[in-house]
C-alpha cells in the first residue's frame, strides 16, 4: 500500500477530486494506493509522517521542507483524460521507484 497526501483549500472539493481520480486510476493500473485529502493549512510535518508521495495543486509554501517526492496533481482537475495522464504516469513512475 502506497500512501499519498493531497490538499486544497477546505480539504473538501479539489483534493477529493484528486483523491478519487488517483485511487481509481492507480487501481486500474494494478497498484494498491491510498490518498489522504486534507485542508492545506492543516498539513504539518507530523501529518507527512508515513506519506510516500505528496500530490499538491501547484507548489505550496508550507513553511517546512518536504523530503518525499512531490507531484503537481492540479491537471487532474481539468477533467480531461489527456491532461491528467502525465500526472498519473509520473505517479506510477514514483510508485515503481518505491517498490
Amino acid at each position: 500500500m502506497i500512501k499519498m497526501l493531497t490538499a486544497c483549500g477546505a480539504g473538501v472539493n479539489s483534493s477529493h477530486q484528486i483523491k478519487d481520480a488517483v485511487e481509481t486510476e492507480m487501481k486500474n493500473r494494478g497498484y494498491d494506493v491510498s490518498v489522504n485529502a486534507q485542508m492545506i493549512k492543516d498539513v504539518n510535518p507530523d501529518m507527512m509522517k508515513g506519506v510516500q508521495i505528496f500530490l499538491p495543486i501547484n507548489h505550496p509554501d508550507l513553511g517546512f521542507d518536504i523530503s518525499i517526492p512531490e507531484i503537481d496533481a492540479g491537471a487532474i482537475l481539468y477533467r480531461m483524460p489527456a491532461m491528467a495522464k502525465p500526472v498519473y504516469d509520473k505517479i506510477e513512475e514514483e510508485i515503481k521507484k518505491i517498490q
Binding site: 486544497c8 483549500g9 477546505a10 472539493n13 493549512k41 499538491p56 495543486i57 480531461m80
Partner: peptide, 28 residues
Amino acid sequence: TDLANKHLHGRKLNIGLDWPFIAGRAEI
C-alpha cells in the same frame, strides 16, 4: 465538462476551477 468539450472542437482555453489552486500561497 465532456459535453462542453465536445462542442469546442479542441479550441485552447483556460479552465475555471474551484478557488483553492492558489491555496498553497501562505498569505491566504
